[in-house]
Simulated scan of single mutants.
Amino acid sequence: MAMAESGWTKEKTVEFIAIQKDMDTKEKLGQYFDEWAPNYDQAVTSMGYIGPSLTANLLQKYVKSKDARIFDVASGTGLVGEVLAGSGYTNIDAVDGSAASIEVARKKNIYTNLYVQWLGGDNKLNINNDSYDAIICVGAFAFNQLESDVLPEFIRVVKPGGYILINMRTRWLRLVSQFSDGKLEGDMAKLENEGKWKLVERHVKEEKDSEQNVVTFIHQIC
């Protein structure tokens, strides 16, 4: 795997992103993001990454109180938290599986609590039920990252009436086997049919390159 270095370009970022699909264990994925962490912000900026700002802006539509308790899940280096803090939110926590990414986020002084933890499977959050007014999760539903088995845990820690915003590339709904053929949205709908949450908006942002289109699923907890 390429080691982290300064002077990241768009081309280098594309190359690095392409190998993520080969990081098929948590150990490999952790090493991948740990190596990328020092240059992650520069790298995704070179790509014109809009996920954090887009999703944070959507959050403001639904969560008006700037004192609301927000949980940035799969926070990485804190790009989402930076936008939230810049928008006036003052009570933001973060969790990510990459210790190096969390350390970059910590130095930004925008989070109240930061946790290093992988989610999914039997990995449960050591957080009480109904703790948060919203979860915001940007870019983590992709190859070898989060899957639909994390959704009940998301729902558990958000208060009734609170919101969960999940932002991802639309292409992953086609290319990632765990999401394709309607699997991910089917799992979301199953939880809605069970009365756990309800879909209030499916926001699609189209780009000139359709492969860069993003979708944000916004659910409200029942």
Rank of each mutant, 00 (worst) to 15 (best):
S53F: 08
N57P: 06
D133N: 14
W118C: 04
N91F: 09
D67L: 13
A99F: 06
T77W: 00
Y62E: 03
V116L: 08
D96E: 03
I110S: 00
D130Q: 13
Y62W: 12
Y49E: 02
A56G: 09
N109F: 08
L54F: 15
D96H: 05
V95D: 02
S65G: 08
L125G: 07
A100P: 02
V80N: 04
N123E: 15
L79D: 03
T112L: 14
K108C: 00
I127Q: 08
D133T: 08
N113F: 12
G86C: 02
G78M: 00
D93Q: 10
A94V: 00
N113Q: 14
L54C: 11
S75K: 03
N57E: 12
D72E: 09
L54G: 11
N91L: 10
L59P: 03
G97L: 09
I70Q: 06
G51M: 13
D122Q: 14
E103C: 04
I92A: 02
A68H: 07
Y132S: 03
T55F: 04
I102R: 03
K61S: 11
S46E: 12
L114C: 14
G97F: 10
D93I: 05
V95Q: 05
N113H: 15
Y49T: 04
G81M: 01
V116E: 09
V83L: 03
N57I: 05
F71T: 07
N128V: 13
L84K: 05
K64P: 07
L114G: 10
D133G: 09
E103G: 01
A94G: 02
S101L: 08
K108V: 00
G88S: 09
G78W: 00
E82Q: 12
Q60G: 15
V104W: 00
M47L: 15
K64N: 11
V63W: 03
V116R: 07
N129Y: 12
D93H: 10
N123T: 13
D72G: 08
T77E: 00
D67P: 11
D130M: 09
V63C: 05
I127A: 06
I70A: 05
N123V: 13
L58V: 12
K107N: 10
N91H: 14
L114V: 14
M47Y: 04
D122T: 14
S98R: 05
Q117T: 07
G51I: 11
M47W: 07
Q117D: 08
K64V: 14
Y89N: 07
S101D: 02
A99G: 11
E103N: 08
V73L: 13
G88T: 06
N57Y: 08
T45Q: 13
K61G: 06
V95W: 05
